[in-house]
Amino acid sequence: MTAGVTLRGVGKTFAAGIEAVAPTDLTIAPGSFVSLVGPSGCGKSTLLRMIAGLAAPTIGTVERTDDAVGFVFQSPTLMPWATALANCALPLRLAGNADDARATEALKRVGLGGFESVYPHALSGGMQMRVSIARAIVTAPRLLLMDEPFAALDEITRFRLNDDLLALWQQNRWTVVFVTHSIREAVFLSERVVVLAPRPGRIVADVKIDLPSIRAPAMRLSHAFTDQCARVNAALSAGEDAA
């Protein structure tokens, strides 16, 4: 089972009078992989937090068909006093589940087997981010919301984690909403790329990615892939010119 999301006229204005997100309609089908791209400050994080229910919209309504949400923040957001395992197991423990087997498994999935008892300060930035991802998937959420999870990583690790994420998604068919500022990453991962423009944040294009549903790593070098990137890029530029 997976969860869909429907936004109806959802907008957010902060106390300072900054309109971070203008009233927006967006429907995300259950089981789909959707990316949000746009320049810095265009409201991607704000939109994602509203989808998660972490921020209340100023106007409009957010509908989720399920409440099992996994969230990856833009920064690792780990508890520094807890080991990698304890951080990863947090959602389980909060639900009263003391069995750490699934957390150990989740750490393995993100390539951190053997780092269970290490504290966050002794992990590299990329490893911290991976603990954060492990924590988000440990509950097998039906809706996975990720805010630039790989932005701080080198390209090699990033490609590997992209492949892993796709594999996970194909296995479980969770709904994934993925924020990134990398066009290539968005195109490689997604079925659909939603392009935002700033001031106020709004959707300026909704690009369906015309690529085979099985994305092999080698696809990053294909012409078809480059074409799709060009389409998203054009939409981004058009959005910025309009702003």
Partner: peptide
């Protein structure tokens, strides 16, 4: 940390 708080809220 506000995000950690949000995380706790998210997981009920």
């Amino acid at each position: 940390d506000g995000n950690l708080r949000a995380l706790f809220r998210l997981y009920g």
